[in-house]
Design a protein around this nucleic acid. Structure first.
Lengths: 201, 201
DNA sequence: AACTAATGTTCTCATTTTGTTCTCAGGCAG
DNA sequence: CTGCCTGAGAACAAAATGAGAACATTAGTT
């Protein structure tokens, strides 16, 4: 909430609305604050509108409508999707899409999260200490990023390439590292990377 | 934490925030410490900011924001966290952590998602068509990745660097692109990137 | 329709409050 | 001693607050 006074105004509007079923006049708000100026009361209401807490029917008496219910922790797994951002242009709205649903990460297949250590996939945008969402599978397609177990002991994160002779090549996304070409019998795929995320904290 | 006194301030801000939903004024912090100087209280808060525990909205009343969110909330959005993966070793279990909580992305602040276009942050692991989670703010700290509006028209995603003379430099994470040094009046910060994710589909 | 009073809206102008930066001073440990 | 942490408080900058004028719109009333 913007300021102390704005908060008082919001609380008053809520209480008034609960009691009467409609919003107070600006003069009543001012009077409740102990001030004389309707203009000032209007400024506070406009601040509340800017925060999305309230809606104003222009020029209407008692034209204030409450927008949000005061629930403190409704956790949904969606966030507003504002649009695209690209260098050199204003943010462009994406029509038809106003929310991004992250629940795709939580679909009830066999999925788990791994914290990545090391830079082997850095050129694919997977950095050290990033999280990857892995779907449990024993097979994968060419070009998939997979969690592969080599010789039953070493687990690595690499891009998969199936060769004609039946062997597979595990390619790191890092020019400093070399691809590994291995016979199919030595490699067991444990899962495929279906997502990645990172938190800046 | 720097000093005992700074810790007291941090604890007080946390408690106050949990109780009221917003931060205390400097005068209230000083009073809680039993001192009379707002200047001293401000010095402690600035120390907390230097440690990254807190963010300050400059010149704003109650402009202190907690940076690390205590998520002791019910975890609706969680996935099993199996462990770490690194090249050349088996997956290593992480003791004490059996679930990864994604709800930090959905905390009750003003957040939204943008789809990134272009390669300007590619070396920071933010690729074309990735999603970034942005927290609405008008200010940011050095090194933060920000959504900045230049001259009120061009929106870009860059790393922020504040210069001593008051100007700011917007640094792309891409050697092929040049940093932009601009006077502070031309740049308006719209938000700070707090997360990033990508879906392989 | 014309008039009127009430209400909302937009301003500018002060004043108060709050945040910010600074210097100075005392206590205390190494 | 020097180098800290700590506190006081002055001086300034910016935000928050309040007053009130002027105008627009609405809702009645005649």
């Amino acid at each position: 909430m913007a300021t102390d006074r704005a908060r008082e105004v919001y609380d008053y509007i809520q209480a008034y609305n609960a009691r009467h079923g409609y919003a107070p006049k600006l003069r009543e708000i001012a009077s409740h604050l102990g001030i004389s100026s309707r203009g000032v009361a209007h400024r506070y209401v406009r601040a509340l509108q800017a925060e999305g807490l309230v809606h104003i029917e222009p020029d209407r008496a008692r034209g204030i409508r409450l927008r949000k219910v005061k629930t403190s922790a409704p956790r949904t797994s969606s966030l507003p999707l504002l649009g695209r951002i690209a260098a050199g242009r204003p943010i462009e709205a994406i029509p038809g899409e106003d929310e991004i649903d992250l629940s795709e990460f939580f679909v009830n297949r066999e999925r788990f999260v791994l914290r990545v250590q090391g830079d082997s996939m850095i050129e694919a945008g997977i950095l050290d200490s990033d999280m990857v969402v892995v779907e449990k599978r024993e097979t994968a397609d060419n070009g998939d990023i997979v969690v592969a177990l080599i010789d039953g002991t070493e687990a690595t994160l690499k891009r998969l390439q199936k060769n004609r002779d039946g062997s597979v090549t595990l390619r790191p996304a890092n020019a400093a590292l070399s691809p590994l070409r291995l016979s199919a019998t030595r490699v067991r795929i444990q899962g495929v990377v279906v997502g990645q995320f990172r938190s800046y904290r």
